[in-house]
Amino acid sequence: MASPTHHVVDIHTHMYPPAYIELLESRNSIPLIRKFAGADEPRLIILPAEAESLDKTTTTTPNDPASSTSSSPHLPGRPVTSHYSSLKQKLHFMDTHQIDISVISLANPWLDFIPSEDAGETAKSINQEFSHMCGQAPGRLFFFATLPLTAPPETLLAAVGHIRSLKYCRGVILGTSGLGKGLDDPALVPVFRALGANKLTVFLHPHYGLPSEVWGPRATDEYGHVLPLALGFPMETTIAVARMYLAGVFEQAPELRLILAHSGGTLPFLAGRIESCVVHDGQLVREGKAGPGSGRRTLWQVLKEQIYLDAVVYSEVGLKAAVEASGVDRLMFGTDHPFFPPLGSDEQGEWESVTWNAEAVRKALGEGSEGARAVMGGNAFEILRLHEEDAAGADAKVI
Rank of each mutant, 00 (worst) to 15 (best):
T237A: 00
L204M: 08
T237W: 08
F269Q: 07
P228H: 06
G232K: 04
V249D: 01
I239Q: 01
G272K: 01
L270Q: 12
P234N: 10
A247P: 01
M235S: 13
T266V: 12
F233Q: 12
V214W: 03
G248R: 10
I259N: 08
L231K: 03
R273Q: 09
F233V: 06
E236M: 04
A240T: 05
T238Y: 02
L260G: 04
R273G: 05
M235V: 11
Y208T: 11
L256V: 10
G272Q: 06
A261S: 11
G232M: 06
H225E: 10
P268Y: 07
L258S: 01
I259D: 02
E255W: 03
V226N: 09
Y245E: 11
T237E: 06
S212H: 05
I274A: 05
L246A: 14
G248Q: 11
T220G: 05
V241R: 04
T237V: 13
L231V: 15
V249C: 00
M244C: 13
A247Y: 02
I274N: 09
L231M: 14
G209T: 04
A230M: 14
L267P: 01
A230K: 13
P254G: 04
V226M: 14
A242N: 09
G224Y: 15
H207L: 15
I259T: 12
T237L: 13
L229P: 01
L227D: 13
P228V: 14
T266M: 12
W215K: 02
G264W: 04
Y208K: 10
R243G: 09
A240Q: 06
A219C: 10
F269H: 13
G248K: 06
A253F: 05
A261R: 01
A261I: 10
V241G: 04
L246S: 12
I274L: 15
A240N: 05
P234I: 06
L256T: 13
V241T: 11
F250N: 02
R243C: 09
P206V: 00
W215H: 11
Y223H: 15
V241D: 07
A219K: 03
S276T: 14
G209E: 10
E255T: 12
I274C: 00
L256R: 01
I239F: 01
A240I: 08
G265C: 13
I274W: 08
A242L: 12
A261G: 07
F233K: 05
S263P: 06
T266I: 11
G232C: 06
S263V: 01
E275M: 08
G264R: 09
V249L: 06
E213V: 10
L229D: 13
I274T: 03
S276D: 14
S276W: 14
L256Q: 07
E236W: 03
P217Y: 07
V241I: 13
L260H: 01
W215L: 04
G265A: 12
L229W: 04
P211H: 02
V214G: 04
E255M: 09
L260F: 08
G216H: 07
Q252E: 11
P234F: 07
M235A: 12
I274G: 06
G232I: 08
T266A: 11
A240M: 06
T220W: 03
E275C: 02
I274V: 15
A271Y: 15
E255A: 09
A247N: 08
L227T: 05
E275H: 14
S276F: 13
L210C: 06
G216K: 05
S212W: 02
G216C: 11
P206F: 09
W215P: 02
E236K: 03
T220C: 00
I239T: 10
S276P: 02
